[in-house]
């Protein structure tokens, strides 16, 4: 079995990040093909505020529709979904989102682990999990779950991250498939498009 490659068509790429990740996304999004055949999910640690300006900020950088998820939204290909502040983002097997306001995990809500684990359960070998810059250990357990379910896992090259701790932590604790800089992440995502 090929270790580093998806063996089935990709349904979703899930990107998790914390401190220093918005800059990465601002570079990554414009480098992606506009006609992605899968969904792009973004989960970021962010301050809880009433305004949802982050979705607007990101939508400037891509022609794909960017939507901050509401409960039970369907998950469609070619769309960018942003986890709302102060909810965990879960994936239902019949391709829609559920939100969850339970306890914080790793001091975080949304927690990257929670979404990665839920995505791994829903999509298994049909997904890619990517962990970006951050100063928290969130995300490592989730990536491990994605790997265990047969998905591909990628960490941002720590020396290219504003906060190296989070990707570093994942690389130390989990057999990561690829350690990429931003350009390589974009190339990889474009390469799995069908």
């Amino acid at each position: 079995m090929a270790k580093n490659r998806l063996t089935s068509p990709c349904k979703a790429v899930v990107i998790g990040g914390s401190a220093g990740s918005i800059d990465v996304l601002m570079k990554l999004l414009p480098a992606l093909r506009p006609d992605l055949s899968f969904s792009l999910l973004i989960v970021l640690h962010r301050r809880h505020s009433g305004e949802s300006s982050l979705a607007n900020l990101l939508s400037v950088k891509t022609v794909m529709p960017v939507r901050e998820v509401e409960d039970k939204d369907p998950i469609l290909p070619g769309q960018v979904y942003l986890a709302p502040a102060d909810y965990h983002l879960l994936i239902e097997k019949n391709q829609y989102f559920s939100l969850d306001f339970s306890e914080k995990v790793n001091f975080s809500r949304p927690s990257l682990d929670v979404t990665f684990e839920s995505a791994a359960d829903a999509w298994g070998p049909e997904m890619v999990g990517i962990l970006l810059s951050g100063a928290n250990a969130d995300g490592s357990d989730g990536l491990r779950a994605v790997k265990k379910a047969g998905g591909v896992i990628i960490a941002q090259k720590p020396e290219t991250a504003q906060s190296a701790f989070m990707p570093q932590q994942a690389i130390l604790s989990t057999p990561i498939d690829h350690v990429f800089d931003v350009v390589e992440i974009a190339e990889y995502i474009n390469s799995i498009n069908r």
Partner: peptide, 9 residues
């Protein structure tokens, strides 16, 4: 109940 949440809980 939403399955994703139940399963996790």
């Amino acid at each position: 109940y939403s399955r994703a949440s139940l399963k996790r809980r």
